[in-house]
Amino acid sequence: MNNLKRAPKRENEEEVVEKDNHSDMATSAAMDGVAAAALRSVLHRVNQAAERSGRVAHPIRVVAVSKTKPVSVIRQVYDAGHRCFGENYVQELIEKAPQLTEDIEWHFIGNLQSNKVKMLLTGVPNLAMVETVDDEKIANQLDRFVGSIGRKPLKVLVQVNTSGEESKSGVEPSGCVELAKHVSLGCPNLEFCGLMTIGMLDYTSTPENFKTLANCRSEVCKALGIAEEQCELSMGMSGDFELAIEMGSTNVRIGSTIFGAREYPKKQS
């Protein structure tokens, strides 16, 4: 039989625990401040890129892409004054959006399947834009459902595959005018706002990709009879957003530079 007596509780044990808790809170607060500081740095770089290209920075929208990041971290960036956030996956967005305030402008920037349209629109009433309309089918699905729920017209961008990669979604550059005309003239519950592209991961053809999208905008605006200022260009991410701005981007999608590396859950064996 074990006759060892439990050591009496130290008088300062609670004090030690309390200090540990304060230390954990301070560490957490320091980590929380990282994303807000990174946002400020990004906004400064956006301003500098705009100045280099002789543009005004305020029309350039920064979409903070919070993919895989918890609501608590998104809230840090929100508290720093940012209101525009983006997500790649419908399920992740409909889980996060209700936990945050309604004045957030959510952009959906991932591949959208037809069977997820209802889930996305009903789950995120403050969805501001879908940046990834890449064919008439998804445009029609969005148009029908937006009309059925009676919300204001949904802003959309036509995604163009400027790099020619089979793994990428997006209409071919040669088809962007036709799709843009379909959205603009045939989908009364959608508001055509411009074009979007994703450059190659290794950035080898980034300038060509961006130039192709700018050329597509010229063709679309001519076909629709609108000024180029009325047609947005969503191009540029963490690794190339400054170049994108210098080449005319009005909308940059920045994730890891603000939030840090993605945090994908480990697959269970």
Rank of each mutant, 00 (worst) to 15 (best):
P70I: 07
A128H: 15
I198F: 03
E14F: 11
K19M: 12
P207D: 06
S66H: 03
D103G: 08
V124C: 09
V34N: 06
H107Q: 09
L154D: 02
T132R: 04
K152C: 03
E102K: 04
R262N: 05
C216K: 04
G150K: 07
D32P: 04
E191A: 00
A244C: 12
G54C: 11
S72Q: 12
L100I: 09
W106S: 03
E228A: 07
L4C: 08
G147W: 00
A37V: 02
F145Y: 11
G260E: 06
T162K: 07
K19S: 10
V171C: 10
L190G: 00
F259T: 01
V117R: 01
L190S: 00
T132S: 15
D134W: 02
P8D: 15
V160R: 06
G54D: 01
D24K: 14
V42S: 09
N12L: 08
R151H: 08
L4D: 12
V177C: 06
A227I: 01
N111A: 05
A227S: 13
L112H: 11
R45T: 02
C231E: 00
P265G: 03
I254V: 10
M1S: 13
C84Q: 14
E11N: 09
G186M: 02
E232N: 11
E95C: 12
T132V: 07
V65N: 00
I245F: 12
S205D: 07
P188G: 13
S167Y: 07
D24Y: 13
L121T: 08
G239D: 08
E87V: 06
E165F: 04
A261K: 14
R83C: 11
R262L: 08
L112Q: 03
S53Y: 00
C187F: 00
P98D: 04
T204N: 12
F108W: 00
L142F: 06
M1N: 12
D24L: 15
T204Q: 15
V73K: 11
D79Q: 10
M200C: 10
S184A: 07
I258D: 10
A261Q: 12
C216I: 06
E15M: 13
Q99P: 07
P70Y: 12
E166M: 14
E95Y: 11
G164P: 01
V63G: 03
T206V: 13
I104T: 03
L179C: 05
E136A: 14
S234H: 05
S249Q: 01
G81R: 10
V77S: 12
E87Y: 04
G123S: 03
V220N: 05
M200H: 14
C176P: 02
G123R: 13
S66K: 06
A35F: 03
A29I: 15
N88A: 06
I138R: 08
Q230V: 01
A37D: 13
P125E: 08
L179R: 00
I254P: 00
K152V: 01
